[in-house]
Design a protein around this nucleic acid. Structure first.
Length: 679
DNA sequence: ACCCTACCA
């Protein structure tokens, strides 16, 4: 590895933009974009692509005639912080020439020329402006992360560009995936035809590379695989502490329990160190912590201490901890996958990809040279997949397909995805959407129901519940429930030290009918607190204040949709809706997810005919109420649920509500009998 | 009788 350090060793933030690596490529880049419809930009961290390229395009005249440059990001924080930085560089006020647009926050004006936004936000704009007429260039940043919305956006952009030959597309990608994107934009028959029509020397898509500006990171491997990567990581922390020079350590683990365990171990090791020698300061970092708790990792370590940050992959791309010298990469992460046959999603510890490993190593070396300890042999690295399987190929596709239908894509099989999803996932999603009434028997979006379902920013079953709440006169309560379930995982704070407290506080809100009404109770209690006392009240009740505020924003946004569709809504009162009405309404969207209690206290999924006579599928057919549910260890003959998850070989249902069999049959309108006949 | 990685509208 090249160990030379360049003379301009300034932190990127303070480096004048003229000496950013990308500035050397300015003219060539502008020429390529001018002459090539699709540019694939390989630019590593520190190249300045995200902040500089939109400015170059603006200078070069791409914002004339009132057109804008869009730059999409997979995350909200990135969209806002980059916009702030660029506004500052250009000496304009944020929200004027340079702005951003994310859910709940639109900081743009009619004068905006450069717009940073989440890719999900641009997809929503396409619903209203199908040809993106306001934009001259769309830059899709961090496309190599292959999130669902990025992939969907790429597919849709490919179609839009056919009808808008003046539109320029820039895809920014890490090295390893650039060829795949090139292939995606040039491989179809239509592409071939278009390439035939191009003038000599012209291309449909081209890869351009801009080198990054980072410090060297030494990569070290194990001789042989580690037996237990958590223990090995703890051991390595200790080794670094004793044998290496000063500098903080960042350890990548897969989840909270591993992190808690490692912190305990390191703390006890630290207490055995001689009191005058340098100490270790272990700190956790994962999304489940409140922002306040996350902030500790940004504070400099006290005198005579070395910070050890034990993190989930949140610090792979989303959170940048400054000043890290040593990386410990265990080589694993948890990923969600979805089984189309059982509709069960599971979260499994899986080896990372080479791309992730490279990304992790790069988290050192941002301000000075670093070292990365990979807790696996080099041969194992070489046999890792080049990149992680795109989310679209392992997720519930109902929301994706609903959105495509709303964008006018009727033939899903012929839609060109960057990576085609398995046909079973597509079939399963179509079936659910048909069952909910969003599609007719020809697979066309129903109107207005299906279209409205697509417009609501909720998972399709929940959107269906919200729409039917109007007929049930319980929209006030359902809006609160839908908003709460959108953030439900983070409502109740339960850290290792206060788990019992949380459990006892939670009891104050518990509704016998189940989790949905419990969430409603929490929301109503929160809303009734005076504005100034809300934060304190949340703290006292072991509730996450930020999550509740977010739920309140979501509720306001959802209510606006209903007001638009039902102008007389204000005159309808739903304050008197009973628990039964609310539960019947929940069944209108959750009937495909019903289960019946068995004598042993487990549940069997409705429509699952396997285990009735006790043959081979018996244990596999069982599901259990998750311990986080208020119905855990409670009696309930029939329930509906929102999530089905597998963990350690056992299946759990979460967000569970007691219902009656007749409601399920009525809402399902023959769904289950049809299902049985088919089998 | 036990835990949710990360992220978007």
């Amino acid at each position: 590895m090249d160990r030379d350090i360049d003379d301009d060793a300034l932190p990127s933030l303070y480096r004048p933009s003229t000496i950013l690596p990308i500035s050397r490529h300015k003219r060539a880049l502008l020429y390529t974009i001018e002459t090539t419809p699709i540019t694939i930009l390989i630019g590593e961290t520190g190249s300045g692509k995200t902040t500089q390229l939109p400015q170059y395009l603006d200078e070069a005249g791409w914002t004339k005639n009132g057109k804008m440059i869009a730059c999409t990001q997979p995350r909200r924080v990135a969209a806002t912080t980059v916009a702030m930085r660029v506004a500052e560089e250009m000496g304009v006020r944020l929200g004027e020439e340079v702005g951003y647009s994310i859910r709940f926050e639109d900081s743009t004006s009619p004068r905006t020329k450069i717009k940073y936004m989440t890719d999900g936000m641009l997809l929503r704009e396409i619903l209203v402006d199908p040809l993106l007429t306001k934009y001259s260039v769309v830059m899709v940043d961090e496309a190599h992360e292959r999130s669902i919305s990025t992939d969907l956006l790429l597919g849709v952009l490919k179609k839009i560009r056919r009808k808008r030959k003046d539109l320029r597309i820039v895809i920014s990608s890490a090295t390893l995936q650039a060829e795949e994107f090139l292939h995606f934009f040039t491989c179809s028959e239509e592409d071939e035809k278009e390439i035939q029509t191009l003038e000599k020397g012209q291309e449909l898509a081209r890869i351009v590379s801009v080198e990054g500006k980072v410090f060297p990171v030494d990569i070290l491997y194990l001789e042989s695989p580690a037996e237990d990567y958590v223990e090995k990581a703890i051991e390595t922390v200790y080794d670094i502490h004793l044998k290496e020079g000063p500098g903080d350590i960042l350890v990548f683990l897969t989840g909270r329990s591993e992190i808690d365990h490692a912190i305990d171990k390191i703390s006890s090791l630290t207490s055995q160190l001689p009191s005058r020698s340098p100490q270790l300061l272990p700190l956790p970092l994962y999304a489940g912590l409140t922002t306040e708790q996350q902030l500790y990792v940004f504070e400099p370590a006290p005198e005579n201490h070395r910070k050890v940050i034990l993190s989930t992959p949140i610090s792979e791309a989303s959170v940048t901890v400054p000043g890290i010298t040593f990386i410990i990469d265990t080589g694993f992460h948890k990923i969600r996958s979805y089984n189309p046959h059982t509709c069960i999603s599971s979260l499994t510890v899986t080896p990372i990809s080479q791309a992730s490993a490279t990304q992790r190593a790069g988290r050192a070396g941002r301000t000075k040279p670093g070292k990365c300890f990979r807790l696996y042999p080099e041969s194992a690295f070489l046999s890792l997949p080049v990149s992680t399987i795109p989310e679209l190929q392992r997720s519930d596709l109902a929301p994706v397909i609903l959105q495509l239908k709303a964008l006018g894509v009727d033939n899903i099989a012929r839609f060109h995805f960057p990576s085609a999803p398995p046909p079973e996932l597509v079939a399963r999603a179509l079936e659910l959407l048909y069952t909910l009434g969003a599609l007719d028997s020809y697979g066309k979006l129903t109107r207005p129901f299906g279209l409205r379902l697509a417009e609501l920013p909720l998972p399709p079953p929940l959107a269906a519940i919200v729409l039917s709440s109007i007929d049930h006169n319980c929209h006030q309560q359902i809006l609160s429930i839908a908003s709460m379930t959108s953030v439900s995982s983070s409502i109740f704070l339960d850290h290792a030290d206060s788990a019992k407290l949380t459990a006892s506080k939670k009891r104050n809100f518990t509704a016998d009918e189940g989790d949905h009404l419990t969430l409603l109770n929490v929301f109503l209690a929160f809303s009734s607190q005076p504005e100034k006392k809300k934060a304190r009240w949340c703290h006292d009740n072991a509730l996450n204040h930020q999550s509740l505020l977010r739920a309140a924003s979501i509720r306001t946004q959802l209510a606006r949709f209903l007001e638009r569709w039902y102008p007389d809504l204000g005159s309808r009162t739903s304050s008197l809706a009973t628990e039964t009405t609310i539960r019947k309404c929940l069944v209108k969207g959750l009937f495909p997810f019903a289960a019946k209690m068995q004598p042993d206290g487990s549940f069997r999924l409705a429509g699952d005919t396997r285990s009735a006579n006790g043959n081979r599928g018996e244990e596999q057919g069982k599901v259990y109420v998750h311990p986080s549910s208020v119905l855990f260890n409670r009696k309930a003959e029939w329930v509906v649920f929102q999530q089905l998850e597998e963990a350690r070989g056992k299946r759990y249902i979460r967000e569970v509500t007691k219902v009656q069999r007749e409601w399920v049959v009525e809402a399902g309108g023959g769904y289950y009998t049809v299902g049985e006949k088919k089998r």
